[in-house]
Design a protein around this nucleic acid. Structure first.
Length: 915
RNA sequence: GCCCGGGUGGUGUAACUGGUAGGCACGGGAGUCUUAAACACUCCUUCCCGCAAGGGAGUGUGGGUUCGAAUCCCACCCCGGGCACCA
């Protein structure tokens, strides 16, 4: 009987569905487990990454179910977003049609995984039934002052024709397309995520990876310091935020962001033209251009002066674009002696430098002799009342000099302690069509008001034309509305960031059909919170941060009050259920395209230690001989290339300005284009490195693909796909088939063989269970492969009894069921069981059976292994020592000295120290 | 520059709390089967010396702690990720 994976997998997927095997129903008598995996965007095709993310999560959910939990494992689609609009523009397909067609296709691909998704709970964020509640949340947040409209400098993407949140902009480029964004003053909708910063910095009671926590902490960017006011002749004073109020005595000038509101008032007439010119020039630059000019700081003197509050000095006020209007107060006090940026600026414009820190154990600093700002510890000098106070590397009040300065500022009334954050409020409006409408009305009198709850959802008009801009802006039918006073008004035309849709989707899964509330409190009381959440780490400061914010604001708006009552009725503790969305978070890595030989790079240059400094880099098909390095580009980090040559991977540094030649791409290129070019080239030349799961499933079956993805990678790390390796996992699945389908008859039963096999079986139960708890699939599968080998050996030897053989086979099926659900259910029922393997309990370890009765004891002499011997597992320390000393091989090592010390770690090791 | 996470055979990975480095696979080699090839099966496969018995080296590099270090400490190099003119 050969293993026909296509027939088996198709049949079981249908049967499970017909049986409703994975329906998750509230049952207060059973412990619940809410397992969640990030929902996909319906791009059209499921790729390996989806399989890699979802099938291990499915295996975990299945394991929890076998452990006795009532498991909810839903799936849905994050279905709003720009690609649908691009399809409309490029191919004339309506975004809704494009999206729903893709969803249809992906549903069937998802089914081919054989996952235990409860499809009755599916949620699709672009359904009006769904976005009605996305809009409702917006209205609630508007009511509670969490959503607000404000004018601010925002990131505008000319490519996407919309504004973007800060989280979506990386190095001045939009994170999706890599195109530059520009800064624009616009009136937009925001969510007050900044009200929650302190709570967001805490991760109490949740089990999240350190990397995500530190990324969020980093992004929020809390810094402690003080706000200080500097009086000016213009009347208004300039407020600055500084983390180093202790260096105030060394502040010799001030710098305002070009956009700062006091610039006009401070600018003197002789300087006005120059200041205006500088402001205009700064405004025209993209963020990217500002960053590129970072070598030389530029700025201009306003002509105005401010008074240093601690010493009364008059100091000049400049403007410069290295001061950001968006951070702190948009103005700084410059302390060139102790800040690198201020130092560079002062040197360039010949401004005063006054050192106020005396370096520990060093000479007094002399301004004229400084080559760099001094940022280390020391003692405050020339600093009025805080002179003599030590200064350390500590931040905030933990630094004695900062504490002293804050106290002094409070005394003289010039400033106070203050905390600043890097994070800004979440900009959620988008000038796009395919998103959830913002349910607001602009009144004729200039005010705004929410659409009445009863009128939700504001539905996207279907009959619209696409030309790259949002069709909502001039859709008169959509726009025309009356306000609550019955007067003509206009609808808001912005839609919401799609991250808004994904900030609450796991609540919608609880009751996707409910039309009276976003979720059913009866369901919520039982299932919440989400117990395990899995997905990619790339969402660290977007989705995962927004989701935390969202739950906290829902809690504060009272959205959970009924749910809480029902929980109390059932005596279920609330814990952190409404403070945090996901109790446990685990991130999988990324599956990369298969590495393969392709286009070569030829590098000319000099060797420098273990790397090569390039003088010229050329992309070529040939392999010229005068090159120092020739081979395939494996990786690039900034200007460092890793090139695979016959002699291994060589590190090549490409200094700025090195000529980079790419055939067909004229003009000056740089390293940034290199990798992109080669990737594109490789992808299009042969799609051999784009791994298509559908093809693999057709060839090997879903069980093999699932098992292999779990086996071949360290899950949190991922890595490049290697098409050769999958045969190993396939052999494993086929061996399981053979083991499960052959009738076993012992030749001659040997009780010792029974003991051995049972020990192996029960040790495997222990090992696999431990590994699945910790998401360590690779070692769990390795242990199951070992058990496969052991069962194969036992069958060949024919010494184990039938009972023990059956226990072994059935345990293998039970332990493998989460990873390979189809073959295990098939074999399970072929063994005459009429209930699914997926309804069985996880096998229990019999500790007696699992115990080793003998172990290999290592005998070392001076820490080197010199012999090994089988001993009883419960050997005493004295016996172990005696056995070790008695070994012939060991005797030979004892002749050159006497035993000075004996270390015994029975039963594993004896170490004899001889000298 | 700062903050995380890493570096183990030809490859992917494994190794409890400091106690046998290389388990599970891929690839490679030899053999059995076959007219042959593929499949399957058996054995070998960290490197060096040796016919072998055996010996030596070995977890990025260099030091240290320890009876004993892949594991702990210090310094450095490299890789991946995040942040970055953030005052």
């Amino acid at each position: 009987m050969s293993y026909d994976h296509q027939e088996i997998e198709g049949r079981w997927q249908e049967q499970w569905e017909a049986e409703g095997l994975y329906r998750a129903i509230v049952d207060w008598d059973k412990p619940k487990h809410y397992a969640l995996t990030m929902l996909p965007y319906p791009s059209g095709d499921l790729h390996m990454g989806h399989w890699y993310a979802m099938t291990p999560s499915d295996a975990r959910a299945r394991y929890m179910r076998m452990k006795g939990f009532n498991v909810l494992f839903p799936m849905g689609f994050d279905a709003f977003g720009l690609p649908a609009e691009n399809a409309a523009v490029q191919r004339g397909i309506h975004p809704a049609k494009w999206t729903y067609d893709n969803i249809e296709r992906m549903r069937s691909q998802l089914r081919s995984m054989g996952a235990m998704f409860d499809w009755e709970r599916e949620a699709v964020s672009c359904d009006p039934d769904y976005y009605k509640w996305t809009e409702w949340f917006f209205s609630k947040m508007f009511e509670h002052g969490i959503a607000y409209r404000s004018e601010a400098v925002v990131n505008w993407s000319p490519t996407l024709q919309t504004v973007l949140a800060n989280e979506q902009v990386i190095d001045g480029r939009d994170e999706r397309t890599g195109q530059p964004v520009i800064q624009k003053m616009m009136e937009q909708w925001f969510f007050k995520i900044t009200d929650y910063v302190d709570e967001l910095l805490e991760f109490e009671g949740i089990d999240w990876p350190e990397a995500i926590r530190s990324m969020q902490t980093n992004w929020i960017g809390r810094s402690e310091g003080a706000e200080v006011d500097f009086a000016t002749q213009a009347g208004a004073s300039i407020r600055v935020f500084t983390t180093r109020p202790d260096t105030l005595w060394g502040a010799t000038f001030m710098v305002l962001a070009p956009e700062h509101e006091l610039v006009d008032a401070l600018t003197t007439d002789p300087q006005r033209d120059a200041v205006e010119a500088y402001r205009a020039q700064a405004a025209s630059k993209t963020e990217l251009e500002r960053l590129e000019d970072d070598k030389e700081k530029t700025g201009i003197f306003t002509g105005g002066y401010a008074t240093n509050p601690v010493n009364g000095e008059q100091i000049p006020v400049w403007i410069a674009d290295y001061v950001l209007s968006s951070y702190g107060t948009g103005a700084i006090m410059a302390v060139p002696a102790h800040d690198e940026r201020d130092f560079a600026f002062a040197r360039r414009y010949d401004l005063d430098i006054v050192p106020v820190i005396h370096p520990e154990g060093g000479d007094r600093l002399v301004a004229a002799q400084m080559d760099d700002a001094y940022v280390g510890p020391g003692v405050m000098v020339d600093s009025g009342s805080i002179a003599g106070v030590p200064t350390t590397d500590a931040k905030g009040r933990a630094n004695p000099s900062v504490a002293a300065a804050i106290d002094h500022l409070a005394e003289i009334g010039a400033g106070s302690e203050s905390v600043n954050y890097r994070i800004r409020d979440w900009l959620i409006s988008r000038q796009r069509y395919w998103g959830s409408p913002i349910p607001m009305i602009h009144r004729a009198d200039g005010g705004v008001e929410p659409v009445q709850d009863g009128d939700l959802p504001v539905v996207l008009p279907r009959d619209v034309e696409f030309d790259g801009r949002s069709p909502l802006v001039d859709d008169e039918q959509f726009l025309a509305i009356t306000d609550s006073d019955g007067k003509p008004a206009r609808r808001e035309t912005d839609t919401m960031d799609t991250f808004m849709c994904s900030s609450w989707y796991w609540f919608r899964y609880l009751s996707p059909q409910l039309d009276t509330a976003p979720f059913d409190p009866e369901e919520a009381a039982y299932w919440l919170p989400v117990d395990t959440y899995t997905g990619g780490a790339e969402h660290a400061v977007m989705h995962l941060l927004y989701a935390r914010f969202f739950v906290k604001s829902m809690r504060d708006m009272g959205v959970f009050s009924e749910t809480e009552k029902i929980m109390a009725d059932h005596g279920k503790p609330i814990g952190r259920a409404f403070d945090e969305p996901f109790m446990m978070l685990r991130n999988q890595g990324q599956i990369l395209g298969e590495e393969r030989r392709g286009d070569n790079l030829v590098v000319e240059g000099q060797r420098d230690g273990n790397r090569v400094i390039a003088t010229r880099v050329t992309v070529t098909d040939g392999e010229p001989s005068d090159a120092i390095v020739a081979g395939e580009l494996m990786r690039r980090t900034e200007n460092i290339l890793g090139i695979a040559t016959d002699a291994g991977v060589v590190t090549v540094e490409v200094p700025e300005g090195t000529p980079v030649e790419i055939p067909g791409v004229p003009g000056a290129n740089d390293v940034n284009q290199l990798k992109h070019h080669l990737d594109v080239q490789r992808m299009s030349k042969s799609r051999g490195n784009v791994v298509n799961p559908d093809e693999l499933v057709a060839e090997y079956g879903a069980d093999t693909v699932r098992t292999h993805l779990m086996f071949a990678f360290e899950w949190q790390k991922g890595g490049p796909w290697d098409s050769r390796g999958i045969v190993g996992s396939h052999r494993f699945i086929e061996d399981v088939w053979k083991l499960g389908t052959t009738d076993y008859e012992p030749e001659k039963v040997d009780p010792a063989a029974d003991v051995t096999l049972r020990r192996q079986v029960h040790q495997t139960i222990q090992k696999v269970g431990d590994d699945l708890e910790e998401f360590k699939w690779n070692t769990a599968i390795a242990a199951l492969m070992t058990l496969r080998n052991q069962l194969g050996d036992a069958r060949r030897a024919g010494r184990v009894s039938e009972t023990v053989w059956n226990e072994g086979i059935e345990t293998l099926l039970l332990l493998l069921a989460p990873a390979a659900p189809h073959i295990t259910d098939e074999l399970w029922r072929r063994r005459g069981r009429n209930e699914s393997v997926h309804l069985q309990s996880w096998p229990a370890v019999d500790p007696e059976a699992a115990k080793d009765d003998t172990v290999t004891m290592v005998v070392q002499v001076n820490g080197k292994v010199r012999d090994r011997v089988e001993v009883s597992a419960d050997i005493s320390a004295d016996d172990a020592e005696a056995v070790a000393k008695g070994l012939d091989r060991i005797q030979g090592y004892l002749t050159d000295g006497e035993i000075r010390k004996v270390i015994v770690r029975e039963p594993n090791l004896v170490n004899l120290v001889v000298g």
